[in-house]
Lab assay of single mutants.
Amino acid sequence: EDTPTSDDLEQFAKQFKQRRIKLGFTQADVGLALGTLYGNVFSQTTICRFEALQLSFKNMCKLKPLLNKWLEEADSS
């Protein structure tokens, strides 16, 4: 899998936040949902820092596919 560039991550974080708000989920909701879906719960702080691009590049890269999958799930339900 290609490592995203920081531009990709920035773009995704922006879109993710917009979609999340549009779908009516809080950052805490997302963190809990990730726990339900993938077995690891993320704190509201982590989601907040992802959206604000304040996590390390490595952590951003790790979270992106999970959040992307969550968006697909949320969109289809």
Results as ranks from 00 to 15, higher is better:
P4K: 15
Q44K: 12
K58W: 06
L55A: 03
N40H: 15
S76F: 08
A28P: 01
Q54P: 00
S77Q: 06
L23T: 03
Q27H: 13
K58L: 07
Q11T: 11
E1H: 03
Q44A: 14
S77T: 15
D8S: 14
R49W: 01
T36G: 10
V30G: 01
Q15H: 14
N40Y: 12
T3A: 04
L53G: 14
G31H: 05
L67C: 03
E10L: 15
Q11D: 09
K64R: 09
L67P: 02
T26F: 05
F57I: 11
I47R: 02
T5P: 08
Q11H: 13
A13H: 03
E73F: 11
A28Q: 09
E51V: 00
T46Q: 10
W70Y: 04
M60C: 04
E72Y: 06
D8V: 08
G35I: 04
E73S: 10
A13Q: 01
L63C: 04
G31I: 04
L32F: 06
F42V: 15
L63R: 01
F25R: 05
F57V: 11
I47E: 01
S6P: 15
A28L: 07
T45P: 06
Q54S: 08
L67Q: 01
L63F: 04
K69P: 00
L9A: 03
E1V: 09
L63M: 13
C48Y: 09
F25T: 02
I47L: 06
E1M: 14
L55W: 02
L23G: 04
F12C: 03
Q15N: 15
A74N: 15
I47V: 09
N59S: 13
P4E: 13
F16T: 02
L53V: 12
Q44M: 08
F25M: 09
D2P: 08
L34D: 01
Q27P: 12
L32Y: 07
S43L: 03
Q44D: 12
S76K: 13
F42T: 10
F42Y: 14
T26P: 03
G35V: 04
P4S: 12
C61W: 08
R19M: 09
F16Q: 02
K69F: 06
F50A: 01
W70S: 01
D75P: 09
T36H: 13
L63Y: 03
C61F: 06
K17T: 07
Q44Y: 07
K14L: 10
W70H: 00
M60F: 04
N59A: 13
E72I: 09
F57E: 10
T26E: 03
E51R: 02
S77D: 13
K14W: 07
F50V: 02
I21S: 05
V41H: 14
K17P: 02
K14M: 10
Q11R: 13
G35L: 03
D7A: 08
L66W: 08
E73N: 07
F57N: 14
Q11P: 02
F12W: 06
A74P: 05
L67S: 02
Q15V: 08
Q15W: 11
L53A: 13
L9H: 04
T36E: 14
A52D: 13
E72H: 13
P4R: 12
W70P: 01
N40V: 10
L55E: 05
D75R: 10
Y38M: 05
Q54H: 07
T36Y: 14
Y38V: 09
T36S: 14
K22E: 14
L53S: 12
A74G: 05
P4L: 15
E1T: 12
P65Q: 15
M60A: 07
W70M: 02
F25S: 03
S56L: 02
T36L: 07
I21L: 12
L53P: 00
F42A: 12
Q18E: 13
T5I: 12
K17N: 00
D7W: 15
L66T: 06
G24F: 00
A52N: 13
C61D: 05
D8K: 10
R49C: 02
A28K: 15
F25Y: 14
A33Q: 13
P65A: 08
S43K: 08
T45D: 15
L53I: 12
D2K: 11
G31D: 04
K62C: 06
L34V: 05
K14E: 13
T26R: 03
E73W: 10
Q11N: 14
L67E: 00
E1G: 11
G31C: 12
L63V: 06
G24I: 00
N59P: 03
E1Q: 10
T45Q: 13
P4H: 15
L63S: 02
K22F: 09
V41K: 15
L63A: 02
L37K: 13
I21P: 01
T26C: 03
L32W: 12
I21T: 07
Q54V: 03
T45W: 07
E73G: 11
R49L: 03
V30K: 03
A13M: 06
E51N: 00
L66Y: 06
L63W: 03
D75Y: 11
P65H: 11
K64S: 06
T3E: 06
S6W: 15
T45E: 15
T5E: 08
G31A: 14
S43Y: 03
I47A: 01
F57Q: 12
A74C: 14
F16M: 02
C61E: 08
T45I: 06
V30N: 04
L34S: 00
A74K: 11
R49P: 00
Y38L: 04
T26Y: 00
S56C: 05
D7N: 03
K64P: 00
K64W: 07
Q18H: 07
G35R: 13
A52W: 03
T3K: 12
K58V: 09
Q11G: 09
S56A: 05
E10H: 15
N59K: 12
F25K: 10
N59D: 15
I47Y: 05
N40E: 15
A33L: 05
Y38H: 12
K14A: 12
K62M: 13
T45L: 08
T5C: 14
G35H: 10
T3H: 12
F16K: 02
T36N: 14
F57L: 10
T3G: 05
E72F: 07
Q15C: 08
Q15L: 10
G24K: 05
N68K: 08
K22P: 00
A13L: 01
K62N: 08
Y38I: 05
L53W: 03
S56M: 01
L71G: 04
D29S: 06
I47C: 01
K14F: 05
T45F: 09
E1P: 15
K17D: 00
D8Y: 04
D7C: 15
Q15E: 13
E1K: 09
Q54T: 10
